[in-house]
């Protein structure tokens, strides 16, 4: 026997109100999503494509040349000098910035008085407009009326035309790089020092490590290890991106002695309008930056385990 059962009103499945959350979310995220695609992802892909062409900006035609731009790059003496200069610059600026930044941070943290003042003074160059400060540096390094040469003359030391001399120009740019970035390194180290638990210093004191040197060796420096790696990579990233001082002070000269990667990229792409070639330089630059950033991500990962 079959019974027709009428489901009572109350037990019928309630019709779900349509879930609007995904729709709202898509609307909220859409502008950012579209802009990231348009302004970051597609241009990056475009760089790789352009790098395989012989396109000159403004030319009507272009053809696929494969990796020829990269081959040309390796053979190009300007690029090789530029690459070598950049590496040399980074190798000088990074260790010096890290070491001085650490020393200043340790000194500031070792006492109570004037902490904020010293921090402000050392951090100032990092946020000051570098283009304007480059102009000030030029006046400072002026061969006749600059403070640098006047001081050296007064002390009876040899002077130099710092920005026009092949031997001095890169070290001088390096000095400016250190001057600009060390406050940044200092701030990161200060944060690192603050995060060392004070019980560790107590423990080391009871264990007998109560001299300044022992405290540094047993507690402070090892505990700063991860921060130091982080500082090294971040400063390296900034050093690889040096542009303003080269553009304003030297234009890569004299005789390409201060030619650096980003400046080469700029000149090839936007002054000579060798678009394909410029894109190849850009790819090299991107590879370096991405490599360093991934290294940094690994270091940060490690820091989690370090605790």
């Amino acid at each position: 026997m079959r019974a027709v059962v009428d489901i009572p009103e109350a037990t019928r499945p309630v019709r779900q109100r349509p879930d609007t959350e995904p729709i709202a979310a898509c609307l909220l995220a859409a502008p950012a999503f579209a802009l990231i695609l348009l302004l970051f992802i597609l241009p990056t892909l475009a760089v790789f494509v352009i790098a395989t062409t012989d396109w000159q900006f403004g030319a009507r035609s272009l053809s696929f040349v494969g990796l020829r731009n990269f081959a040309e790059l390796l053979a190009d003496s300007t690029f090789r000098i530029s690459f070598a200069n950049t590496c040399l610059y980074v190798l000088v600026v990074v260790p010096a910035t890290t070491a001085i930044g650490l020393a200043v941070a340790l000194l500031i943290e070792s006492g109570q008085s004037l902490r904020a003042f010293y921090r402000a003074v050392h951090f100032l160059p990092f946020m000051a407009t570098l283009a304007a400060m480059a102009v000030a540096w030029e006046a400072l390094l002026h061969p006749t009326i600059g403070l640098a040469n006047q001081t050296l003359t007064a002390l009876g030391l040899p002077t130099a035309n710092w920005l026009r001399d092949e031997r001095t120009v890169l070290p001088v740019l390096g000095l400016i790089g250190i001057w600009q970035n060390l406050g940044f390194a200092m701030v990161l180290f200060l944060a690192g020092l603050k995060s060392i638990p004070s019980e560790l210093y107590d423990a080391s004191e009871i264990d007998g490590a109560d001299g300044t040197f022992d405290r540094l060796r047993i507690v402070t420096l090892p505990m700063l290890g991860p921060v130091t790696m982080f500082v090294v990579i971040v400063v390296a990233l900034r050093a690889f991106q040096t542009f303003d001082t080269v553009k304003i002070l030297t234009q890569g000269g004299p005789a390409k002695a201060s030619e650096m990667l980003l400046y080469t990229l700029y000149v090839e792409s936007f002054e000579f309008l060798r678009t394909g070639y410029g894109a190849a330089v850009t790819v090299v630059f991107l590879a370096i930056v991405v490599g360093l950033t991934l290294l940094q991500a690994r270091v940060m990962d490690k820091r989690v385990h370090y605790q």
Partner: peptide, 21 residues
């Protein structure tokens, strides 16, 4: 993921294609 990739790309890399655009 796109945000993280964007975080990775320095702006100088984008200059050339953005200039053309």
């Amino acid at each position: 993921t796109l945000v993280l990739i964007g975080l990775l790309i320095p702006h100088e890399v984008l200059a050339l294609p953005l200039f053309i655009l």
